[in-house]
Computed example of a mutant assay.
Amino acid sequence: MKLDIIIFLCCFLVSSAAYSESPLRLHDLAARNALHMRAVSVPSSTKTASSSRSSITSSFASVSASETSSPASGSGPPIGDASSTTNSASMTASASTGSSSISVDPRSPPGGVSMITPAITASQTYIKVGDYATFSWNYTSLIVTPSAVNVEAYCSINNYYYPIAENLTVKDTQVVWNTSGYQETATIPLLVAEYTLYIYDASSNPSAVASPGCLAPYDNLNFGVYTPQAYTPLNNYQCATCSASFSLIERNVLRGTLAMSLIACLFTVLFMMR
C-alpha cells in the first residue's frame, strides 16, 4: 500500500514538472520573439532619427550659408554685429557732417575789419601813382569764415572798382598795391581823384548786407591818388588853378609902383614940414 502511494507521488511530481516546463518554454519563446521584433524595429527607428538629424543639420547649414552670404550679396538686412557697426558708422558720419555746420546766434553782430595801415585816425592819405601802397587789417567778430576775400579801390568819378587783390584767405591780412605796374597794364587807368577802399566777401558784393557772424563789406577808408608831374622851371610854371595870380612881370611892375608911391609920400611929408 505504501509502495503504491510512493509510486503515485513520483508520477504526479514527474507530470507536474513536465507541465510547468512547457509553459516556461513557451514563455521563453514568446520573450525571444519579442526581443527579436525589438531588434528588428530599433535599427529602422535609429535610421529615421539619423535621417531626421541629417535633414536638420543640412537645413541649419543652408540657413547659416544664406545668412552668411546675405550681407555679402547685399540682399536682406544685416544681422548681429553688422547692424550695430552700420549704425555706428552712420552715427559717426552724421556727427562728422554735423560738426562742419556752424550755429550762429541771430543776435550776433556781423564780422568787420579793423584797419592797421593806414590808420583811420591818421590824416588824409595820398598815394602817388608809381609807388607801392600797403594796406593791412584785422578781422573782428567774424564767426563764419569766408572762402575768399576781395580788396578793391572804388572811384566815384567813373564808378569803377579797381582791383587791388582777389581771392585772399582770411589769413592774408596785408596786401601791397603796385600802382606803377597796374597803371602800365590797366585798360582803365587810375585817375587823379579820391578813392574808397573796399574789403568784402568774394562770394558777395561790396554793397551786400551781411548776416550775423558773416563778413560785412568794409568801406571806411578814403585816400587820394595823384600822378606826379614833370619838373618845370619856376619862370615857366603856370598854376592851372591859380588864374587870379600875377605873372613875374606883373609882380615886378607892382613892386616898382609901390616903391615910387612910397618915395612920393616921403617927399611930400618933408616938404610940408618946412
Rank of each mutant, 00 (worst) to 15 (best):
S101V: 08
V63K: 03
A82F: 01
A49L: 15
K47L: 14
I120Q: 11
I127M: 13
A49C: 09
P118K: 05
T125V: 13
T121I: 06
T97A: 15
D81P: 08
V63I: 13
W137L: 04
A61V: 08
A119H: 05
S103T: 07
S70F: 03
S94Y: 11
T97P: 03
P77E: 06
I120M: 15
M91L: 13
S75I: 15
T48E: 04
P78N: 07
T125W: 05
P106G: 02
G76W: 06
D131W: 05
T125G: 03
S51C: 08
E67V: 07
V104L: 01
R107K: 13
T85G: 09
S58Q: 10
T92F: 10
S58R: 08
V104R: 00
S51Y: 06
P71M: 00
G74N: 01
T57N: 09
I79H: 11
I116S: 01
G111A: 02
A72W: 15
A72N: 09
S73W: 04
A89K: 05
T57I: 09
K128M: 14
P110Y: 03
V113F: 00
P77V: 12
S84K: 00
A119C: 05
T121L: 02
G130I: 02
T68Y: 05
A95T: 06
S59G: 07
G130E: 02
A61H: 04
D81R: 06
T134V: 13
T85S: 13
A49E: 06
D105H: 06
D131A: 15
I127Y: 03
T125D: 01
T86E: 10
I120G: 05
D105Y: 03
D105E: 02
G111P: 00
I116T: 07
T117D: 03
G76M: 02
S101M: 09
R53Y: 12
A93E: 10
P71Y: 03
P110D: 02
F60T: 12
D81S: 12
M91C: 04
V104K: 05
T57F: 11
G111T: 05
G76P: 01
S100V: 14
T48R: 06
T125H: 07
R53L: 12
G111H: 04
T57L: 12
S84Y: 13
G130S: 05
I120D: 07
Y132H: 15
P71V: 07
T85M: 11
